[in-house]
Write a protein that binds this DNA or RNA. Structure first.
Lengths: 213, 213
DNA sequence: AACTGTGAAGTTTTTCACAGCC
DNA sequence: GGCTGTGAAAAACTTCACAGTT
């Protein structure tokens, strides 16, 4: 059964697939071999119909009456998301956040590996952080150009984020995860995702009214 | 003009307000005093109609022909999101991530202040991280109970996240930002938001096909 | 009996387009 | 002329409900 991908798949569906994949790996670790859209939905707080509909965009991964073979579904979702390989990632910013990212052990088994750590601050350049030697940002372009690095992470202050984004794009990066709390402009075809904890906190604080005291 | 809030406002609208607020503070820093839905939309990659529609849920904040007074709109959005005050926050997990959070200077001016840092590891307890002394998780409940702490952040490994969530809820926390890459169950009325960088990376890697080589 | 995959129905969200005001 | 606020229209998304398969 070949992977269906020609039809146009809503971006919102793509955004849920990593959550399905994550939940499936935990189910597998717990010893499950088979699951159902209902079970998966319960874990995720998503309706079973939505899960079936989402998965149906890529072809039939399940069996009527039985459900989904977990290893098979994991494999298929990894195919769809292209994480059946490891993408090398460049991290820019070696402060507290960049260092935490460099130390994090959870990327590799999910398709990504931090391979470079850059910073602009001369005091940080040359220092060792985890297994990385912090490289000067001035060499970012030269270092990444021959590398086929397509994924970058921005962990610098907001006022430096745009210039770092420009550098990454110039070096051939096509997907950027931006931890700086500011919107950045990139040319068409370059993807950006944002992580800003305060945005999530403020989203929740809206609802913290009534019964506040 | 009183804040309208009785009508039921879609959650997806609430989720965009922090982005508007963030962009407005940058506009203000750049010296702008007035903006328009068009200008704001350009910065955010959102249509001007959507911004006007979103803001209209809370009453008329703008002036026809003129646009929006930035300080006034900031003030109103802070009111709506309840960040015209500072929410004390408890962080659980004092590893690399928890430490980076403790060192982060960007919470305060946006409505939040880390006030406690907990960990289960005896080697970390008592250590100083930024201005915090790491407290034992066994004292979380006792420490927070008299504090009116309603916001918590989970920065522990995935296999500890559920028990930490239970502890936080038991201590009266009503909003949790979970950095652990796993779904947690909480009672009705407790809010959870998730931050998992790999989810964002996998979302983007889907699109990194074609012209890969 | 249990479960998937899917058209159709229902709901939510976004965009359109324009009256009204500065 | 420029801009907001908003009903109405359009588009997108989710849920329903069931035929079909194991």
């Amino acid at each position: 059964m070949p992977l269906k991908l020609n039809e146009n798949i809503p971006d919102i569906v793509i955004g849920r697939l990593p959550l399905y994949l994550r939940a499936l790996t935990y189910l597998q670790q717990e010893g499950h071999e088979v699951t159902s859209s209902h079970e998966l939905g319960q874990r995720l707080g998503i309706s079973s119909a939505q899960i079936r509909k989402d998965l149906s965009h890529f072809g039939g991964f399940g069996k009527q009456g039985t459900g989904y073979q977990i290893p098979y579904l994991i494999h298929k979702l990894q195919d769809v998301l292209q994480v059946n390989r490891i993408w090398p990632v460049a991290v820019v910013g070696a402060g507290n956040l960049g260092s935490a990212i460099a130390h994090y052990r959870g990327f590799e088994e999910r398709g990504f590996r931090v391979c470079w750590l850059f910073d602009a601050d001369p005091r940080r350049i040359g220092q060792q952080v985890d297994s990385f030697i912090v490289q000067p940002i001035s060499e970012l372009q030269a270092t990444l150009s021959g590398s086929n690095c397509q994924v970058g992470m921005i962990a610098v202050p907001a006022d430096r984020a745009q210039e770092v984004a420009d550098l990454l794009v110039g070096a051939g990066v096509r997907a950027i995860l931006n931890y700086a709390p500011i919107n950045i402009n990139v040319p068409p075809g370059v993807l950006v995702q944002y992580i800003d904890p305060v945005v999530h906190l403020q989203h929740m604080s809206f609802y913290l009214r009534a019964s506040d005291e």
